[in-house]
Design a protein around this nucleic acid. Structure first.
Lengths: 329, 329
DNA sequence: TTGAAAGCGCTAACAA
DNA sequence: TTGTTAGCGCTTTCAA
């Protein structure tokens, strides 16, 4: 299987390589019959341009990096699938990097993407700072941040979760709950935990607060969720409602609740975040804030396209989150 | 941020670019002090070789394609994460392609991987044939197939599920079940459904059979699982035990069981396959055949490394599956 | 032990 | 409207 090059196509069509290139890129007019001849030759020979050569020449790779803390989290898996499907048509390839929330992994990948002049990077930074992302900007690599917080002057897709969160609080307080707690993400995560901040702010509007002892922190894992829930229940005045930074944590909380014989929602109401597939599968079914992964992935793809098409001012796309009442409140 | 090239390093170290290249590759001896000077310059300038240029020159890209039918299925997501983590050290990037079990998507990606001389392709073919994979072999691109069936002369990672499946059958028959059914994958899937074949063979050893009407087929989706279960229950003699080609299907079956007021395991025992995260989350907890995704992903990475290191004879790695008794049998 | 230089396949500036 | 050609950054052959 010999590689077919532009030179082969040019020869077959009786034109120069430049013409073939221009037919492909459309960057300069080509006479219709010349174009036809070239296209025929391309089809005939089954030619596909060598993206490596193209990248070397243009200084732009066809790779888009996707940096996520945990690909096994259904949210990120769906996000990745949607992103890839939307980028495919542009001839872009999605390169995944699972960082396990490890800063050095995040940084190593971002560095490489900058060095190799990736076509773009879509990242959910977990321990990375805005400063780290400047690496990419300086290298001229478009960045899309998928996170609740703002991280420098870059494109961003973020949940619009205020009304959903308010609805959740409403449901919780309607159920007579007053001692509201949260199992948040780790303290040293990039931007702290914006979901906690939002909950705090909204709670005040509801005339209540998150008591000091009722905010615990941990990684976005099932184990950490169990741990956090255990901590919460060991308080002198344990909570009667627990919000979680995501559904994985919430499931961990349910694990521990079962061990401790704490009834959900009888003793404690539980609210997740994301609406991962399993949220409707656990018993009781998890009440949660749905943040649609597919829509978020598609939005990220759109932002990237716009950048590649020349937009220079950063833009934020907000994806509406939605309260999903099930059985855990 | 100017790109640092080998020429810069060479100049700084007072040597030729060739020497820099050889220091990096180790493909010819370099005097220790020369080497030291070069390494110092590399560090000083923060040089990283341009993989695009390297690929163009060597005709080998640093990309490994991962082709899966459904990235949102936790099995594939974990597989992807493990593969990527094991390939990272080799400087290889994992490019994902989510095909939604669509043959044309599979084919398009395989074609491109062949054209662009990918470093390798790891694929769970769903509608692709051995013949299609020859595209890659002819292009000299190493292929690792992750599937129960054998697909041409390529490397392969596959479950060793016989004993686990036997244990599952044992549990089912111990529970007094005799009318065994299966919700299998689609008829036109590559290789049919080997899990069905295995179950059939083992059932015979148990002195029973899968009656004709008790094998239904569908996609590997929750909806198809529900559909299939409904079909099965509409039979004149419905089954009292249902095996599923994977856990996603099994969950769909549970959905429908609930709608139909069929008790699991009271009326019907249910067995999944994979042990996806949610298997232990649904109620009743799903009894299943655990096929460890991470181990499979790591095995695929290993096979690829071996190929890249020069092995030429195809090899199959079997990953042991395990019966996990929970509550649905 | 090291260097010079060709060339991988493409794009785009320049020329015609 | 089209062609010629330099050169992207690297690897590797050939020569010293």
């Amino acid at each position: 299987m010999e590689r077919v090059t532009m030179a082969d196509v040019a020869e077959a069509a009786g034109v120069s390589v430049a013409t073939v290139s221009y037919v492909l890129s459309g960057k300069r007019p080509v006479r219709p019959d010349t174009r036809a001849a070239v296209e025929a030759a391309i089809r005939e020979l089954g030619f596909t341009p060598n993206t490596t050569a193209r990248s070397l020449r243009t200084g732009r790779s066809s790779l888009v990096g996707l940096v996520v803390p945990d690909l096994a989290n259904p949210f990120y898996a769906q996000f990745a699938a949607a992103l890839q499907e939307r980028l495919r048509d542009l001839g872009l390839h999605v390169v995944v990097c699972n960082t396990r929330a490890d800063r050095s992994e995040e940084l190593a990948f971002v560095r490489e993407a900058a060095q190799q002049q990736f076509a773009g990077v879509v990242i959910t930074p977990f321990r990375l700072t805005a400063k780290d992302l400047e690496l990419l900007e300086r290298a001229g690599v478009p960045v899309v941040v998928s996170a609740d917080i703002r991280l420098g002057q870059v494109d961003r897709v973020a949940p619009e979760a205020r009304s959903a969160m308010r609805a959740a609080l409403q449901a919780v307080t309607d159920a007579g709950r007053r001692r509201i707690a949260m199992i948040a993400g780790p303290r040293d995560a990039t931007g702290g935990d914006p979901r906690l901040e939002l909950l705090r702010e909204l709670a005040r509007q509801f005339g209540t607060e998150l008591p000091h002892g009722l905010v615990v922190r941990g990684e976005h894992t099932r184990a950490a969720g169990a741990e956090g829930f255990g901590e919460l229940m060991s308080r002198r005045h344990p909570p009667d409602a627990v919000f979680c930074a995501n559904d994985v944590i919430a499931v961990g909380a349910m694990d521990r609740a079962e061990e401790l014989d704490v009834r959900i929602p009888g003793d404690v109401a539980l609210v997740g975040y994301d609406d991962a597939v399993f949220a409707s599968l656990v018993r009781p079914r998890l009440t949660t804030i749905r943040y649609p992964a597919q829509a978020a992935g598609e939005a990220a793809a759109r932002l990237l396209r716009e950048r590649i098409d020349g937009r220079t001012v950063p833009r934020t796309v907000r994806v509406k989150a939605e309260f999903v009442a099930r059985e855990s409140v």
